[in-house]
Amino acid sequence: MMRIAAAILSAGMALSATAVSAQEWPSKTIKLVVPYAPGGYTDSVARITARYLEKELGQTVIVDNRAGGGGIVGSDLVAKSPGDGYTLCICSVGAISVAPVAQTTSYDPVKSFKPVSVVSTIPQTVIVNPSLPINTMQDLVAYAKANPGKLSYGSSGAGGLMHYSVQLFDARNGTKMTHVPFKGGSPATAAVVSGEVNLSFTNMTDALPQMEASKVRALAVTSAKRNEFAPQLPTVSETVTPGYSVESWNGVMAPASTPDPIIAKLSDVLKKMAADPEVKKSMAVVGASTVFTTPDEYKAQIAAEVEQWRELLKEIAEKKN
């Protein structure tokens, strides 16, 4: 009897201990790791998020840039950090959903993290050099089919999202285009402008200024829905490839051992953030749409994306054999 009572008591204490720690959280400075260099797109999103978290949680939130390996170094660091709610990550699709499939990472995209919420999304834009006789997505598919291997596309490097989105496009449409990797998305976009490559599935932020100056011709966006910043552009899905959806996202993730109450509290704050007009305005400046997802939705999304890229790689490998 005593033993049962003791067990109940200690269980209760253990429960209240986590409850207290979540209630007290945050009691010190929070570190928000950005696995990319300062000044870039993810960094901007992180700084907007950090400013909002600081205001809502009443604690200092420092942005810690840990660039390297296309986001793997910083994401890995967070996966291995103590799950006390004081180390968080502004992770991105490349290092979480693509890299673990394309290469070996010491973290597992689903098991090593507790996702909290996607905070922003940005689609890719299909841009072509204006000298090409390609004005629509239908033209693109027809031209690619008539000239297999002739069209070249620039990417931010092998195994990056800009590379895989075209591979997926090729696989779904039975086309074949030549991959030309660059060091980053910005030189790849510049190569479409100069005509060194024919086209690219480029991040919208990079594409917009060149579109406005008519240096490139934009054909479509890669997301499932049309984009608020270029509503005139159709989606790839509604034109030639039904069901096609590739979107770049940034979201807050915590190490897997982080207690659920902390995740819940963070989720509430991020839900409020997604509705904040100031935040929406700042995100719009960098070309991002402000988004909120629940931890479960976020987890399911990552699992689905990992599955999609795994399937694609298998398909490509089978075709080669």
Binding site: G39, G40, S44, S186, A190, P209, Q210, K215
Partner: peptide, 27 residues
């Protein structure tokens, strides 16, 4: 003139301009 950064430092300048709501580009 074109919004194309040629080095890491110039990429930071792009970041700084974007943070201020200016998209560096041909315009």
């Amino acid at each position: 003139t074109m919004g194309i950064p040629t080095s890491a430092t110039m990429a930071l300048m792009v970041g700084a301009l974007t943070l201020h709501g200016i998209a560096p580009g041909p315009m």
